[in-house]
């Protein structure tokens, strides 16, 4: 499904990703963990196609070269990124935004557009999944939403877009335990044999709710260790110190609620 080889990313003269390799099979959930500044978010944005990076290496999804594509083409190819900081868009109605997104992808794929009435049903199901009130759909995208509402809105979008590959960037940050439960429930219900996920997190906490098939440790722009979910538990106990060559001025892993 997703093949990442020797991926590099830099901003100006500053290298951030330094040759990242990763293979994600269909239906698999991979967690990427790492200390602050290790390149986790850059990896997510490199997959989604953000401007401003010098990119090297190869990334293919189902054989298609993602790095050649604009962000909207990647979305049409099945990439969905859940933002760590979802963007507020005043004046653009959430429902209209969602339907425009779905229909843009359908148009690109040569499929018929979905009408307002049919779309409402799709949206309402997704709303139920993330326990959102109906007025959510008629507010401006993320404008004035609480941190938890924004993250739920990300999962709502994912449920509506039905991506092939979901990349969730620090979806747990800023969430209290109830919101975390709702978000995790949404993510788990969207797991399936045809959908792969990359869950990026600093803390092991999220992985209590979303059990990954594989865990990778990203340090200084490279994956330095891979294992099953027990690797996350090891990190919980011992921190990232064993994987880096210098002292970490990092927050403790356990009990943190960033």
């Amino acid at each position: 499904m997703l093949h990442v080889e020797k991926l590099t990313a830099s901003i100006g003269d500053t290298p951030i990703l330094k040759g990242l390799d990763l293979a994600v099979g269909a239906g698999e959930v991979h967690a990427i963990m790492g200390p602050n500044g290790s390149g986790k978010s850059t990896f997510a944005h490199a997959l989604a196609g953000r401007d401003g990076y010098e990119i090297g290496g190869t990334v293919t999804l189902d054989g298609a070269d993602l790095l050649e594509m604009e962000p909207e083409a990647r979305a049409a190819a099945g990439v969905f990124m859940g933002f760590q900081y979802p963007v507020e868009i005043p004046g653009v109605n959430n429902m209209y935004f969602l339907r425009t997104a779905v229909n843009s992808v359908r148009r690109t794929l040569g499929e018929d557009e979905i009408g307002a009435r049919d779309f409402l049903k799709v949206a309402e199901q997704a709303m139920e999944l993330v326990e959102m009130k109906k007025d959510f759909l008629y507010r401006s995208v993320n404008a004035g939403f609480s941190g938890g509402e924004k993250k739920r809105n990300e999962i709502l979008q994912m449920a509506v877009m039905q991506p092939r590959l979901a990349v969730l960037d620090e979806t747990d940050s800023g969430l209290d335990i109830d919101a975390l439960r709702v978000v995790a429930k949404g993510v788990n219900s969207l797991r399936g044999p045809e959908r792969s996920m990359i869950v990026i997190t600093h803390y092991q906490r999220l992985l209590d709710y979303i059990k990954p098939d594989f865990v990778h440790v990203l340090v200084e722009g490279k994956i330095v260790e891979s294992g099953d979910h027990t690797l996350a538990l090891h990190l919980e106990e011992n921190g990232y110190a064993g994987f880096v060559n210098h002292d970490l001025d990092d927050a403790p892993l356990s009990g943190a609620s960033a």
């Binding site: 962000p71 979802p86 425009t100 997104a101 843009s104």
Partner: peptide, 16 residues
């Protein structure tokens, strides 16, 4: 135009 908002929308499949 807010570049971050444009990127966000494009990442949802909406052409630039």
């Amino acid at each position: 135009l807010d570049e971050e908002a444009l990127y966000y929308m494009r990442s949802r499949g909406i052409p630039a």
